[in-house]
Design a protein around this nucleic acid. Sequence first.
DNA 1: CGCTAACAATTAGTACACTAACGAATTACT
DNA 2: AGTAATTCGTTAGTGTACTAATTGTTAGCG
Lengths: 143, 143
Amino acid sequence: MPAVDALALDRQVCFALAAASRSVIGLYRPVLEPLGLTHPQYLVMLALWESSPRTVRNIGEALALEPAPLSPLLKRLEAAGLITRSRKVDDERSLDVELTVAGRALRSRAEGVPAQIVERLGMPVAELEATRDALTRLLEASR
Amino acid sequence: MPAVDALALDRQVCFALAAASRSVIGLYRPVLEPLGLTHPQYLVMLALWESSPRTVRNIGEALALEPAPLSPLLKRLEAAGLITRSRKVDDERSLDVELTVAGRALRSRAEGVPAQIVERLGMPVAELEATRDALTRLLEASR
DNA sequence: CGCTAACAATTAGTACACTAACGAATTACT
DNA sequence: AGTAATTCGTTAGTGTACTAATTGTTAGCG
């Protein structure tokens, strides 16, 4: 393949990925705004609704995120009253992140979010799941 | 489907999308670093290698980007000596962005980028193309 | 036992991205 | 013609992300 075409394909793949990511996250914005959450904060809450407490590093592994961006994000969630942050008793290097009552309560309001997004996208659920699986393979291949 | 499944992290398209986007862009970082480009800057240069000059708005439409983040980004490319920024003569609201000689010259060094990424991913090109098509449909559906 | 290596989280610095507000220029309408 | 509505780019403010350096803590080894 000539380099000119390789640049074109590359432009298509990395552009499609970055643009779709920005655009889909933009769809979440008005849906999450009433909950007082940004999209990365929503992902952290999803991780905590699955399991709480868990450490900063453990959340980072679940979300493929470094502790660096999590640190200020978690402070905002703490300021919003959704989580508590406290050093582990058996290892003071680690920070336990735990849902508050308000954080747990927010879950029921968040349960409608996925359906709203799927409806807004107007794509068959099967195609969304296939795309998600393709993205998961891409994620695995890239790390 | 119970809400417990709807909120499962590993079922979320938005998580796979955000994580894959961050991770793949991370792959570009060491490859683009010798060129002195970040990933969004690389996308802008790709757009300019296809057509130059073009206006800020026109670049934004090609990349699905608002003028707001483009404005400081283009100033950095100008500071790097890769582009020039000048008001259009026939409409002084618009800004013409044009490649410099150095900007055009950078293209030959960038032509090796796609192959490096594809090789690093280790995925069949056909699967990459299928994923690109799925992402394009997702992008279209989301805007 | 003490020193060092490894580890967890935070911080600093740079660069995006979004919304909203703004200033300057152009077009449209009466 | 002249005002109003649009359009284009920039800026301010908030919130991510990344790398690298830092602080504090634990574990391992001679």
